[in-house]
Amino acid sequence: MVSMRDIAEKCSVSVATVSKALNNHSDISEETRKKIRQTASDMGYYPNSAARALKTNRSYNIGVLMNDRAHSGLTHEYFSAVLEGVKVESESRGYDITFINTHNRKMTYYEHCKYRNLDGVVIACADFEEPEVQEVVNGAIPSVTIDYIFNNCTSVSSDNVKGMRELVQYVYKMGHRKIAYIHGESNSEVTKERLASFYMTLEELDVDVPDEYVKSSEYLNAVKAEKLTNELLNMTDAPTCIFYPDDLSYSGGFNAIKSRGLKVPDDISMVGYDGIKLSQILNPKLTTVEQQSRKIGMLAARELITCVENPKTALVKRVVVDGRLLEGETVKDIRQK
Rank of each mutant, 00 (worst) to 15 (best):
V161A: 13
V320A: 07
R302W: 04
I141G: 07
K295Q: 13
V320K: 12
E193A: 14
K106N: 14
D119C: 02
T236G: 11
K285Y: 02
K317S: 15
S155C: 15
K106F: 07
D147K: 02
R260T: 09
D127A: 10
S216V: 08
E218N: 11
S249H: 01
I305A: 09
A140M: 09
Y213T: 06
I305Q: 08
F79Q: 10
V214K: 00
V18T: 04
G252P: 11
Y95L: 10
K295D: 08
A51F: 04
I146L: 03
K285F: 00
M200Y: 10
Y45H: 04
M4E: 11
L22Y: 08
L299M: 14
K173A: 14
T39Y: 10
T236R: 12
V190E: 04
P239M: 09
E309W: 05
S249F: 01
T145F: 05
S217P: 05
T330F: 00
I100W: 03
D247F: 00
L233K: 10
Q336P: 03
V264E: 06
S3C: 05
L262G: 06
E327V: 02
K277D: 00
V168S: 01
L220K: 05
M298V: 05
G272H: 05
G323M: 00
K87D: 10
V320I: 15
V207E: 05
G323E: 03
G73H: 11
I281R: 02
D274E: 01
A222T: 13
D206L: 07
T56W: 04
V209I: 14
I7N: 04
K55F: 07
L326S: 01
K295N: 11
I7Y: 00
I276R: 05
I7T: 07
N230E: 15
K295S: 08
I242S: 08
K162L: 11
D208N: 09
S269K: 06
E309H: 03
M43F: 12
I7D: 05
P265D: 04
I334K: 01
T17D: 13
V319F: 07
R33V: 06
L205H: 01
M1S: 13
C307K: 15
D274Q: 02
F243K: 00
I7S: 03
V82H: 07
N101K: 09
V137Y: 11
V88W: 05
K227T: 13
E30Q: 12
G175P: 02
A16N: 10
N101C: 04
V331Q: 00
G120E: 02
L282A: 07
D237M: 13
I146H: 02
D237S: 14
K55M: 08
H112G: 08
K178E: 15
K263N: 11
F254P: 01
T108Q: 01
K227Q: 15
E189H: 09
N24M: 10
I100F: 04
R318W: 06
L304N: 12
A126G: 08
L54K: 00
V136I: 12
G252I: 09
D96S: 14
